[in-house]
Amino acid sequence: MAASVPLPPDDEPGQHRPGLRERKKLRTRTAIREAAYRLIDEQGYETTTVEQIAAAAEVSPSTVFRYFPVKEDIVLADEFGPLVAAAVRARPAGEPPLEAVRAVLREAVGTILADRPEESARRGRLLLEIPAVRARMTETMAETSLPLARAVADRTGREESDLEVLVFTASVLAALREVTLHWAGHGRKDDPAALVDRALDTLRDGLN
């Protein structure tokens, strides 16, 4: 996903904006991602190096690694985990955890596809074609699951280390991974929100 992240203009009244430092970081991350996708489109993933990406983004290789520890993270890393966890916390009290997560994920995938369709398509293609990208996605799920596990634990009155909480969050993220791969592997024709429903219904009902 390589579309620019829109930032509000400095003189827009009543608009809450991140601080200058955060805006600069966001622009740097976006520049690195855009450069990476441009080079990957031109010459392929395997032959694109971090040094080339850094040069195209007009930053140093050390800056790239500061934002993205490995090359695969450039096409995978985002702030998805904390944002989803915050949205789950904001859902109505008493809503079952699975339904809270369902509502958040449906909205999230719809927003991502609406705002960054080309980036979503590129990411999906790389997930299908590059084993290292798929492996890194699975590896980083452990980090993504932590904020979600805390949010689920708070909603249910459990400890985030409870087996049930860990199984629930791991299952939800695994379902989301399969939704992503299914969507990409079937020509990106299906509605991702509907695929989220199908995946979470399977977690709820089993293979009935």
Rank of each mutant, 00 (worst) to 15 (best):
T144N: 08
A85T: 00
A153S: 07
L181R: 11
A184L: 00
D11A: 02
Y67T: 03
R134I: 00
T63M: 06
A93I: 13
E159S: 14
K71T: 12
E72D: 11
L20T: 10
L128C: 07
V104G: 09
A85V: 01
M141E: 15
L7P: 02
I74E: 08
K71N: 05
T48K: 06
E72R: 00
N208W: 14
P117N: 06
G206V: 14
L127T: 05
R91M: 12
A194G: 10
V109G: 02
V179Y: 06
R27H: 10
P69N: 06
G94A: 11
A135R: 05
L7D: 00
V84M: 09
P18K: 00
A85E: 06
A54P: 02
P18C: 02
G94P: 05
A3I: 10
L163V: 11
D11G: 00
R123D: 04
G187A: 01
S145H: 02
D197N: 04
D190Q: 13
L39I: 10
G206N: 11
D73E: 13
R38V: 01
A36L: 02
T169W: 12
Y67H: 15
E139T: 15
S145R: 13
G187E: 03
T48Y: 05
V101K: 02
K71Q: 04
A100L: 01
L148P: 03
L98F: 08
A175F: 15
A57W: 00
G185S: 01
R91E: 14
Y37G: 15
V196K: 00
V50F: 00
A54I: 07
G124D: 04
V5E: 01
E34M: 11
P18D: 06
G44P: 08
A31I: 01
P147F: 10
R188W: 04
T30N: 12
A100T: 06
A31W: 00
R27V: 10
K25E: 15
T202K: 01
S4D: 14
L76S: 06
A77G: 11
E118H: 11
P117E: 05
E22C: 00
L195G: 12
E139R: 11
A175N: 05
L39M: 07
T140C: 03
F68G: 06
L128S: 09
W183R: 01
V104Q: 01
T156M: 13
T30H: 03
L181W: 13
D190N: 07
G14P: 01
A56L: 09
V133E: 03
I74N: 10
E160P: 07
S60T: 15
V167M: 14
R17G: 01
L20C: 03
V59R: 00
A100V: 04
E107L: 13
V152N: 08
E46N: 07
R33H: 03
S62Q: 14
A132P: 09
A93Q: 12
T138M: 11
V133P: 13
R198Q: 13
E72S: 12
G157V: 08
T111D: 12
T30M: 03
S171A: 15
A103I: 07
A35E: 02
D73S: 02
V59S: 08
W183D: 10
A121Y: 11
N208E: 14
R23I: 01
